[in-house]
Nucleic acid binder design. Structure first.
Lengths: 197, 197
DNA sequence: AAAAACAAACCGAGCGTTCGGTTTTATATT
DNA sequence: AATATAAAACCGAACGCTCGGTTTGTTTTT
């Protein structure tokens, strides 16, 4: 229920993934939803409010990563699941918001970090969580003999995380984020094989 | 000579590194330079023109990387020089534009990619150049016996490039880009030691 | 009939830009 | 050295327009 409100949210999310907060205009949101300004302001009190709801929805639901459900006894299984998870998310997001279009969620993050104080905290929290999940699985993999290395657990974790982020930002810049997973896979395999011995 | 023009360029660069093109206003540029709108439009024909000159200056001069002058016979020397180079650039840039402030050059890139077609081409060219420089030194290092690995040259190159980019984007998001080099160093050392065998 | 959902006309603030004019600097003339 | 002339540098009020937001009016639902 409340189709209109969700339509506005989805449309706004799509626009905020394509352009910065300032670049997306009310006229645009209203035109793309096929509604009027009156309708918009019936459901939202301001452009900033819809932005906040969009960003909370995007990072709280669409892009949320539940590390708890990831494999807990193999690094290889863990990173394979991570990649599969990302690919699933992107497919779902694409389906929910219509056809293909150029996305840049870093635009959303940058705006969020500058406009919403609570988003900065949550973002830091998410980073810590990701770091912990990777460090944990690395420690376990080392203990189980799956890998061995002179690097510390957190250094290995960082190599996975940072290389993944690097692939992401580079593929976003060339408008081909959908190919990112395919790029990461062989790189993480290579990294893993080095760690194996 | 032409101090005013350069003052406008430096001030605009500083602002465009802090906020997006749309967020930076003419009033702001004019106030920060201590000049008038009339003076600005004496030197530049539009806000877009100064943006284009700023971005050309930033990527053509300030942030340009001359791989040609990098060590050509050791991967370890190469990446150490790379880090030193980045640190030097950041110090120079900071000095040229006054005191400390939060920078996010990805904002600049995103705007540039969407607004300036020629920037997209140049950016792609720069990426190819970086990829070639790293692949070359990796191939040489392998041939000389400095490293050995099952990964291809370009895969190893990508691991260095992507992990560096990942560190960059993450430290930008936490407003501490100046610490990025210190984070990369141990990671690249760890990666290098694995490659050494 | 009352309330919710929407549409359309409208508003003032702020945007980038323009333009008529003044001040400063450089060059030429005496 | 003093004066006249021209060019460059600079100023800020005002313009047209778009922005996010509001008000008023109409339709739909309950």
């Amino acid at each position: 229920m409340n189709d209109s409100r969700e339509l506005i949210l989805n449309t706004s999310l799509r626009l905020f993934l394509q352009k910065s907060f300032k670049e997306v205009t009310m006229k645009e949101i209203v035109t793309e939803t096929g509604m009027s300004k009156g309708a918009f302001y019936h459901y939202f009190s301001s452009k900033e409010q819809v932005f906040e709801e969009v960003i909370n929805f995007f990072y709280g639901d669409v892009m949320a990563v539940k590390y708890g459900s990831f494999p807990k006894d193999s690094l290889r299984a863990f990173y394979n699941e991570y990649i599969a998870h990302i690919e699933r998310q992107m497919k779902t997001a694409k389906y929910a918001m219509g056809a293909d279009f150029t996305t840049n969620h870093y635009m959303l993050i940058f705006d969020g970090l500058r406009m919403l104080p609570h988003f900065r905290e949550e973002h830091t929290e998410r980073q810590k969580e990701e770091m912990k999940a990777w460090t944990d699985i690395v420690r376990i993999a080392r203990k189980k003999g799956e890998i061995k290395s002179d690097m510390t657990d957190s250094q290995i974790a960082k190599m996975f995380i940072y290389s993944g982020d690097g692939v992401g930002i580079n593929f976003i810049m060339s408008d081909s984020l959908h190919k990112a997973a395919r790029e990461i896979h062989p790189l993480w395999d290579g990294l893993y094989n080095m760690l194996k011995g």
